[in-house]
Design a binder for these strands. Sequence first.
DNA 1: AGTCGATTCTATAACGTTGTATATTCTGCG
DNA 2: CGCAGAATATACAACGTTATAGAATCGACT
Lengths: 330, 330
Amino acid sequence: MNDVARAAGVSLKTVSNVLNDYEFIRPATKQKVLDAIAELGYEANLTARSLRSGKTRMLGLVLSDLSIPYYGELASRLMTVAASRGYRVLVEQSGADGVHELSALQGPFRQLTDGLLFNPLALDVETVAANQGSKPIVMLGEHIADPRFDLVTMKNAEAAEAITAHLLAGGRRRIAVLGASAGDTTDSPGLRLNGHRKALEAAGAQLDPALVVPCDWRRDGGASGVGSLLDSGIRFDAVFGLNDVIALGAMHELLVRGINVPDDVAVAGFDNIDEARFAAPSLTTVSPGMEEIAERSIQLLIDRIEGVEASPAGLHVEAGFELKVRDSAP
Amino acid sequence: MNDVARAAGVSLKTVSNVLNDYEFIRPATKQKVLDAIAELGYEANLTARSLRSGKTRMLGLVLSDLSIPYYGELASRLMTVAASRGYRVLVEQSGADGVHELSALQGPFRQLTDGLLFNPLALDVETVAANQGSKPIVMLGEHIADPRFDLVTMKNAEAAEAITAHLLAGGRRRIAVLGASAGDTTDSPGLRLNGHRKALEAAGAQLDPALVVPCDWRRDGGASGVGSLLDSGIRFDAVFGLNDVIALGAMHELLVRGINVPDDVAVAGFDNIDEARFAAPSLTTVSPGMEEIAERSIQLLIDRIEGVEASPAGLHVEAGFELKVRDSAP
DNA sequence: AGTCGATTCTATAACGTTGTATATTCTGCG
DNA sequence: CGCAGAATATACAACGTTATAGAATCGACT
């Protein structure tokens, strides 16, 4: 920067002012500086800038594991949105482990970032509250929904309600739910099951616990879940997989056993992963608005960082969902 | 740090020396400093350290898109390995776009990192060579294999050769290849096809171009690829999907059409993604040693950064592969 | 012409650490 | 006991930027 100042015949601070779009600079001066910068190929030193300004223009993202497709996709979109706002995203994997979550919350990671997008899975609210530090945090997901924290999440219950209503409207009466236990009421499985129950009751029906099958939230979980249901002889005319890979695994198992989808059994999922569109038959599902979640959470966090958002912490945002009716449950 | 120095009754530099494991410190002094640090809850300012030392202890990772499962998984492992060595990973998505790749190579991103793990897909070697800057770069993948650059990659040809040899040993004679054009010779499709051809020739057979079907490297690509093959009436007794999702898509289509896997048609893939193990039937594939790729590339990059690795740039490492024989092609 | 306020620019001091050079304290040995 | 040399600790400067406060310039109005 010294060299630039000398080349342009101005002071160090004037160069800095040009770089920071300071208001009162004569156009001629500004041009001289810009020319010198171009001439010398100067690039500002971000580390020094951070040291002096106290800002890194990086956002922290804490999630369990990038190798889980949903998180990979979420991280990808968050990074894209953040980039468009002039921020970078630094990712920290917690492995859904409380110890790691806590160290991401307190440790050096925090120093490197101006704010945190935090998707806790293990830590309880009080621990988070006691260790939140002074920089802004925006929560993602279902695990922590507390009035003290900003939160961006999806309409789990409403979306599940909508998809069940769609199945009911299609004449399905016995809908198997894969991926929850009948008693769940919290986190993704519980909230989605609640929505499902509500749609049933709105139609004057009752949730049959025998049709609620817990399974791993993965493809083989859906396959074995629907398999055991078939083996046990319980009748059903639709399957609601609480996420898409469960639904796809179930659909695969149905097709392999010669059961027609959707004629014999309709299948619906949740998430609208890319693959849902290309499955055979294409999967009816609900898109939870990941794009909007990315947009809103980044926006909110940056507003907090830059002091734009004046409202007290505790803003809760729910992204809109969209029903995607496809061939597996028309 | 000033406060710590005062509390411990030593100089600023002594505290710094304790933090940096300087050799000549009396145990008693060291303990006093550590006590003061614990007492005050002091944490070193990483930004200031970076400014002074010129190192950020961050590694850059440039890849096309984290939402692609392979890259999500790779990033996840790289981050884990890097963390165990005291480094963080800062990811930049290029979208497989040359403009973005170039800006990641030259831009401010480079400043924030001590070295680069670079998986170029669009940029040509000369452009990379002309813009490599002064910090170490380790290439990942198949796109750039140039003696000027360090490279960590997988044994594409050898692994494909092994899997084809396995299919041949199982008595399969007409192996359809999904995911390449008959003329491909470079990058992943070409290298894997080369290995396939070599195994055929070693068995005294020839590659039949009619059995080489180009398709998208995705699930529906594999499904439609094998579908068009079936529709055209071309006979085959095995399918080699050039990656696992192609193979899984093909297997799905075969099963839906009532074709038995593996009795009528054996199916093999490439990558050993998590899902391969849980598919029905489980997928025979080849594990390209992603764990080893992560280990070796991080190790090599850090060695270059810290000046341990003395050999001139241009080290090429190929991770070992492992054949995973499962039910789809026993 | 002189004054005032707005505009434009600059000198200097930080931000919190580590490198260099140097001062001080030990230790062992003649 | 004194001295060399190792061991230990320190002072000071520097990394490259931005914040603060103040200086210089300018235009408009008395």
